[in-house]
Design a protein around this nucleic acid. Structure first.
Lengths: 341, 341
DNA sequence: GTTAGCACTCATCACCCTCGAGTGCTAACG
DNA sequence: CGTTAGCACTCGAGGGTGATGAGTGCTAAC
C-alpha cells in the first residue's frame, strides 16, 4: 500500500489537530475540517489504512487515533510548510537578546529565556566547545601568599578561571612576566599545539617547573572537560503545563534529566551543522527522553567555534513554530556574539 | 490556658509523626507511641485544647490533626533537640565539596548539590555580596581591534568580566599599563572609595577618558547589581517527590519561583548572621512560598564578605536534619572558600 | 484526672450505571 | 468502484451509591 495524496492530507490534518489538542483525533473532526471534503466514513477507511502502515495508533478501541513517531518523522520531513515569524516577533526577540549584560554568559542566559518564552517549551543552550577554541590571553593574579588565580580568556570571549598554588616569594611583577610569556607562547594555538609548547616550556624553565606544571594541568582540564556551567537551561517548568506531564512522576524524571547536564550535553552536541535538526522520541538515544522530541540548531562565535541551541518538548510538539524560532535565534545569537569577537 | 509539660510532649509527638508521614495524626497513633503513656481518649482531650490554642488544625471532622505554622514555630524554637550528623556523613559531604573543580563557582555549585542530596529538598546558595568585597585586580585583555575584555578579580576569588570598547590603536602594552594603574588605584578599596578614585583618574587622564569612563561604569554595575548567575539552585526536582506537590499546578508555581532568581535572592539575603535562621510559611513574605519553609545559614569568604546558603521545602520539613546539615555546610563552605583567599 | 464505650462524621474506594465519542462493518448509492 | 449512510459495538469518563474505616466528641464509669 502506498501513500497517496489524500492520505498525506488526512495524516497532516490529524497531526495538526493532535498537536493542538493532545486528544486522540476522530474521523468526524477531520471530516469537518475545511480542506478535507470527505465524510467521516471515508476518513475512517483511510485512517484504518494509515494505522496498518504504522502512522497511527489507537490508545484503545473506540478512541480516536494518535500519530506515531513514524508519522511525526514523515510530518517534519515532508509535510511541514515553513512558518514565518512576524517581524514584530523577530524584533522583540532580538531586543531581549541585545539589551542584556555585555558578558558572553549573560547573552546566552537571556537567549535561553527568550527561546523558552517564545516556544513555551524547555530550552537548552550549550556554550561553544572549547576544543575548537583558541587561547587569547593567560593571566595570573595573586590572591594570597601562596595561591594565584589563573585566568584564561579564549577567542570567543569566554573566561575560565581556577586557583593554583604558587611558590612563595613570587612578586606580582614576576607573575606578570610569566603571564606574559604564557600568553605569548600559547595565544592562537589549538590545544594540541598548546601541549607541545608546554613540553618545551617545562624543559627550559626549571625554576618554575611546579608552577608551570600546575598551570598546564588546569588549562588542559578547562579546555577539555566541558564545564557543567556550560549548559544553560531555560523554562524548565514550562513542560509541566502540558498534559503529557500531568503525572508528577514523569515530570520528576524529566527534571532529573535536565539536572544531569552531562546527559543534556551528550544529546545536544551530536552534530554541528548550522541546519536545524530534529530528533523524535527514541531517535535521541536517551531512554529517559523517549517521549520527547529535541530540535537543535547551531550558532557560531567568531569564525570557528560553535555551540548548540535547542528545544526539548513532547513529541507532540509544534515543530513548525519551534523550527522557525530556532532558526532565527541561531542566526541572531551568532550575530550578537560575533560582534564581541 | 497554658501549655504544660504533657501538651508539649504530645505536640512534639504529633509534629514528629506528621513530618514523617504527611498524614493527619490521630489520637491512637500518638497513644501507641513509646514515651507517651496515655490512652487515646486523654490524648484527644489534649489535642482538642491544642486546637483551641491554635497549634493544631483539622482538615475535616473525623480526620486527624495537622500542625499549624504556629506549632512549627514553637517546635523549632523550643522542642527541637539538635541532631548530630554521623562523622561518616560529615566526611562524605566534605569530600564532595573539596574534590571538585578549584574554581569558586564550582565549589558553590557542588555545595548546592551536596545540600540537596543530603536533605532531599531544594537547596539555594547566594554568592557573596559584592558590596562588601574589595577589588583585587583589574585586567584589560584585547579581544579585537576595538574591543577588550575587562576582568575584575575580587578578594573572594570571584571573577567578573564584560566587554568594553577601546579606542583603536591602543597596543596590548598600553592596555597592560592601564590595567596596572587601575589595579594599583583600586585594589583593596571598597566601592565608595572606588568612585572617588575614579573621579580623580578621569580628571588626570584626559586622553583615555572614554575608556576609563566605560570601565568605571562596568565596575560599578558589576559590583552593585548582583548577577542572576549568582544564585545557584540544586535539587529543584526534589520537592516533586513530596505529597505537598502531587498537584502539578503547585509544582509549576514552585518551579516558576525558583526560576525568578530575583525573588530568591530577596528572600535569602534578609540577614547575614552566621546563625541558622528559619522562616516558616508566610514568615518569608513571599506569597508564592506561603506553604514553604526556608532555612538559611551564612558562609564567609575571607574576612568580610559572606553569602547565604539555604534549603527550601514544605513547612512540614525535617527541620532537625536540615538545620544540622546547613550548620555543618556553612562552616565547611567557609573553610574551603577561605583557603582560597 | 483518666479511660472505656459509643454514636457520629467524613473521606476513600469499589461498584454500577449511563452517556457519548468513536469505530468497523455492511449495504446502498451515484 | 469509490463513497457514504446506518447501525451495532466498544470503551473511557463521569456520576451516584453503599460499605469501610479512621477518627472525633461526649458521657459515664473507674
Amino acid at each position: 500500500m502506498q501513500l497517496d495524496e489524500r492520505k498525506y492530507l488526512i495524516l497532516q490534518a490529524i497531526i495538526d489537530d493532535y498537536i493542538m489538542t493532545a486528544m486522540p483525533v476522530g474521523s468526524r473532526t477531520i471530516s469537518r475540517k475545511s480542506g478535507v471534503g470527505f465524510s467521516p466514513a471515508t476518513i475512517r477507511n483511510e485512517m484504518s489504512d494509515l494505522e496498518e502502515l504504522g502512522y497511527l495508533a489507537q490508545p484503545h478501541t473506540s478512541a480516536g487515533r494518535v500519530p506515531s513517531n513514524k508519522a511525526y518523522r514523515l510530518y517534519v520531513d515532508h509535510l511541514l510548510k515553513a512558518a514565518k515569524l512576524t517581524s514584530d516577533e523577530r524584533e522583540r526577540m532580538h531586543e531581549h537578546l541585545v539589551d542584556k549584560s555585555r558578558r558572553v554568559e549573560g547573552v546566552i542566559r537571556s537567549a535561553a529565556d527568550v527561546l523558552s518564552d517564545a516556544t513555551k517549551y524547555t530550552s537548552v543552550i550549550v556554550a561553544p566547545k572549547l576544543g575548537t577554541l583558541r587561547i587569547k590571553h593567560v593571566q595570573l593574579v595573586p590572591v594570597s601568599e601562596k595561591t594565584a588565580l589563573i585566568i584564561i580568556v579564549t577567542n570567543a570571549g569566554i573566561v575560565k578561571d581556577a586557583v593554583i598554588r604558587v611558590p612563595g616569594g613570587l612578586s606580582a611583577d614576576e607573575l606578570y612576566s610569566i603571564s606574559r610569556m604564557l600568553t605569548e607562547k600559547l595565544a592562537e594555538k589549538p590545544l594540541e599545539a598548546v601541549r607541545q609548547e608546554f613540553a618545551e616550556l617545562l624543559r627550559n624553565n626549571a625554576e618554575n617547573r611546579r608552577l608551570l606544571g600546575e598551570a598546564l594541568q588546569v588549562i588542559e582540564k578547562k579546555l577539555e572537560s566541558e564545564d557543567q556551567a556550560d549548559v544553560i537551561i531555560g523554562g524548565s517548568a514550562n513542560l509541566l503545563g502540558y498534559p503529557e506531564y500531568a503525572d508528577v512522576n514523569k515530570a520528576r524524571n524529566f527534571l532529573a534529566v535536565l539536572e544531569s547536564k552531562d546527559t543534556i550535553r551528550r544529546v545536544l552536541s551530536r552534530d554541528g551543522s548550522m541546519e536545524v535538526t530534529i530528533r523524535i522520541g527514541p531517535e535521541n538515544q536517551v531512554p529517559a527522553l523517549n517521549d520527547c522530541s529535541i530540535v537543535t540548531a547551531s550558532y557560531r562565535v567568531g569564525d570557528r567555534s560553535n555551540g548548540t541551541l535547542g528545544i526539548i518538548g513532547p513529541t507532540r510538539m509544534n515543530y513548525n513554530r519551534v523550527i522557525s524560532v530556532l532558526d532565527f535565534m541561531g542566526r541572531a545569537l551568532s550575530d550578537v556574539l560575533s560582534e564581541y569577537k
